[in-house]
Design a protein around this nucleic acid. Structure first.
Lengths: 144, 144
DNA sequence: CTCTAAATCAGGAATGGTTATTGATTGGCC
DNA sequence: GGCCAATCAATAACCATTCCTGATTTAGAG
């Protein structure tokens, strides 16, 4: 089963960084798989709580932070909205609907040589280049 | 004097949107000119307070929000850091130092046809494309 | 210049997302 | 089974920002 293989991989990554795969961390991963989207910490918390009502929101934040550190989860931040978490850690663009908050991927677009161009034009040592997109999702367009 | 002309222009823009140029709003503009950088609301507040200690932080937020609405001020947001305000409303890139928080412009780099490319690859109606850059500023590089 | 209504203000309380603290619990290893 | 460090739940604290209130100021009419 792919599930088990993936879990072994994550367990291994955790171990390498001195962490263990606790039931809470697994529950957070399961929740991320379940939503298949870009949930906030609060969203994840609500899903996790369905199966284990004793889990606290702080624990979810902790778990997400550990999972991000070992590289199995990626976070993205839009202003005026909580941070979103994603199992897709490949470089990709996400766009957020300014009306309903829905976040979706934008396939087939890369940053190209923009990152190199930026590094050439600044004395800063560039460590992060994030493109923050906002728009109106198809559903909200219809309702508009 | 350019100052007066600029002020007239701003007064006119305010009037068109039903606002007036109050002493507090002028003080906020002066503070933005004074720093010549990318101050946070708190930074602006501290400068304004030097000349008028009775001004409240909330008033600064209000003033910045009005000035942004009429298009003479632009705000940019990096996560893990308060929103920065800028008198430069031309499209341009800013980079923030992850160590000291300093924000500087990156000249000579535009988004090119990236915005068009994104619109072609999403069903969303794209309204905002912001590039959020982080790095280590020259000073912090030397200290590192 | 004076009056009045509307806009704006100062001050402080409230909010929302996130992080820090603390004492209790758990899990891996002998 | 018992020990020690890692982890946890719960809650308090934090910080940037917004909201609320009653007081003050302002622009425009007369």
């Amino acid at each position: 089963m792919t599930n088990t293989a993936l879990e072994q991989d994550i367990r291994e990554k955790l171990r390498r960084s001195g962490y263990t795969l606790t039931s809470q961390r697994r529950a957070v991963l399961d929740a991320l798989k379940e939503t298949q989207g870009h949930p906030s910490a609060e969203d994840v918390y609500l899903i996790v709580k369905k199966k284990n009502p004793r889990v606290a929101l702080g624990t979810v934040y902790q778990a997400l932070s550990v999972l991000e550190e070992i590289g199995v989860v990626e976070s993205k931040h839009w202003s005026e909205s909580p941070t979103r978490y994603d199992l897709n850690t490949e470089p990709h663009l996400d766009i957020r609907c300014g009306n309903c908050g829905r976040v979706s991927e934008v396939p087939g677009v890369g940053l190209g040589d923009l990152e190199a161009l930026i590094q050439e034009n600044t004395a800063y040592n560039v460590t992060s280049t994030r493109l923050v997109l906002e728009g109106l999702c198809p559903i909200c367009q219809r309702e508009g």
